[in-house]
Simulated assay, not measured.
Amino acid sequence: MKFKLILASVKTHITDSIVDAAKEVGATGATIITARGTGMREAHTFFGLTLEDQTDIVLFLLEEHTVKPVLKAIETAGQFHEPGTGIAFVLPVEDVIGMESQIERFKEKVRDSYF
């Protein structure tokens, strides 16, 4: 099986929505990393202190066939058409270990769909 990794950088208030939407179309879970970053807009300042929005990096390790529907679900739920809401991109994954239980679950779904 081939795997890919979707990385989505989103504002923290959007994280749960994109994870839920991704699960609805086939993602089995996500890893969420708290981060901060800069974008095209300058950070706001208040009395000389920089106020940066907290960001979450959401990682989805997916079987290749689920990438497009999950990416679309993330785009819709995260309202990525709005400026400054987030970005997502896909990377190829060379090797994976520790996914055996999820691979078995997928095989069961495929078997069940044929019968």
Rank of each mutant, 00 (worst) to 15 (best):
M1H: 09
K2N: 15
K2S: 13
F3C: 05
F3E: 11
K4T: 07
L5W: 12
I6D: 00
L7G: 08
A8T: 10
A8M: 06
S9A: 12
S9Q: 02
K11R: 14
K11L: 15
K11E: 14
K11C: 02
K11G: 05
H13N: 14
I14F: 10
T15K: 04
T15H: 05
S17E: 14
S17H: 12
S17K: 15
I18N: 00
V19I: 15
A21W: 10
A22Y: 08
K23V: 13
K23M: 14
K23N: 13
K23F: 06
G26H: 05
A27N: 05
A27F: 01
T28D: 01
T28S: 14
T28F: 12
G29L: 08
G29F: 10
A30E: 05
I33S: 05
I33C: 06
T34P: 04
A35T: 13
G37F: 03
G37S: 08
G37C: 10
G37A: 03
T38Q: 07
G39A: 10
G39I: 01
G39D: 03
G39C: 03
R41A: 14
R41M: 01
E42R: 14
F47C: 05
F47R: 15
F47Y: 00
G48V: 06
T50R: 13
T50G: 05
L51N: 08
L51P: 03
Q54P: 04
T55L: 14
D56Y: 01
I57E: 11
I57R: 01
V58G: 03
L59W: 01
L59P: 04
L59S: 05
F60E: 05
L62G: 06
E63V: 11
E64F: 00
E64H: 12
E64T: 05
E64N: 01
T66W: 01
T66D: 14
P69R: 06
P69I: 02
P69A: 01
V70K: 06
V70A: 05
L71A: 15
K72R: 13
A73S: 08
A73F: 04
I74S: 09
I74D: 03
E75M: 09
E75K: 03
A77C: 02
Q79E: 12
Q79H: 15
Q79N: 11
F80N: 00
E82Y: 04
P83S: 04
P83C: 07
G86N: 04
G86W: 03
G86Y: 09
F89H: 02
F89Y: 15
L91F: 02
P92A: 10
P92C: 09
V93Q: 02
E94Q: 13
D95V: 09
V96D: 08
V96I: 13
I97W: 13
I97K: 14
G98D: 03
G98E: 10
E100G: 12
S101Q: 12
S101P: 01
Q102H: 12
I103C: 03
R105P: 07
R105I: 07
R105Y: 08
R105T: 07
F106Q: 04
K107M: 06
K107D: 07
K107Q: 10
K107P: 07
K107A: 14
V110N: 00
R111L: 11
R111N: 08
S113K: 10
Y114R: 14
Y114F: 12
Y114W: 11
F115E: 13
